[in-house]
Simulated assay, not measured.
Amino acid sequence: MKALWNDTVLAESNDTVVVENNHYFPADSLKSEFFEDSIAHTSCPWKGRASYYSLRVNGELNKDAAWFYPEPKDAAQQIKGHVAFWKGVKVVE
């Protein structure tokens, strides 16, 4: 699987975890030069508190376009250390 935005591969892995139709990529599959820490957080009743990354590619910013659960609840332990995408990021095989 590949995560693409702005004609650039952000992450690539054969070992994603699918939860609620989202592919979660292992953290070590991310191309870290495109990721910036965000102060955004949201909460999910069964996964826990999500943190976000913004993406910067070719000078363009996609704010809070990737999320992860640093300390997921017990029911979501399979996504610990994984990152998912939205806001126009395409996930393709």
Rank of each mutant, 00 (worst) to 15 (best):
W5A: 15
C44T: 02
S54Q: 01
R49E: 08
F35L: 11
T8Y: 03
A11K: 01
V18F: 01
Y52C: 00
Y53V: 02
H41V: 12
E60Y: 02
N58Y: 08
N62S: 14
A50H: 06
E36K: 15
H41Q: 15
S54M: 01
V9Q: 06
A50M: 04
E12V: 03
K47M: 10
P45Q: 11
W5K: 12
N58D: 15
V17K: 01
W5M: 05
P45T: 08
T42G: 13
A50V: 04
P45R: 10
E20S: 14
T8V: 09
R56K: 15
E60D: 09
E20Y: 11
S32Y: 08
R49P: 00
F25G: 10
D28N: 15
V19M: 12
A27P: 00
Y24V: 06
S32M: 14
D28C: 04
G59D: 03
R56Q: 08
K63D: 06
F25C: 04
L10S: 13
H41P: 00
V57Q: 01
N21F: 05
G48Q: 01
S51T: 10
S29V: 07
E36C: 09
R49T: 04
V9K: 00
A50G: 02
L55P: 09
W46T: 10
E20A: 15
L10I: 09
G48P: 03
P26A: 11
L30Y: 12
R56D: 01
S51L: 05
F35N: 09
E33S: 14
H23A: 15
F35V: 13
T8Q: 14
S32A: 11
P26L: 14
G59K: 08
N14D: 15
V19N: 02
N22M: 05
K63N: 06
N62K: 15
D37G: 13
V18L: 08
F34C: 12
V18G: 03
F25N: 02
D7A: 15
E33V: 12
E12M: 00
S54Y: 03
W46A: 13
A27K: 07
S29L: 08
G59M: 06
N6G: 13
S29R: 03
F25S: 09
A40G: 01
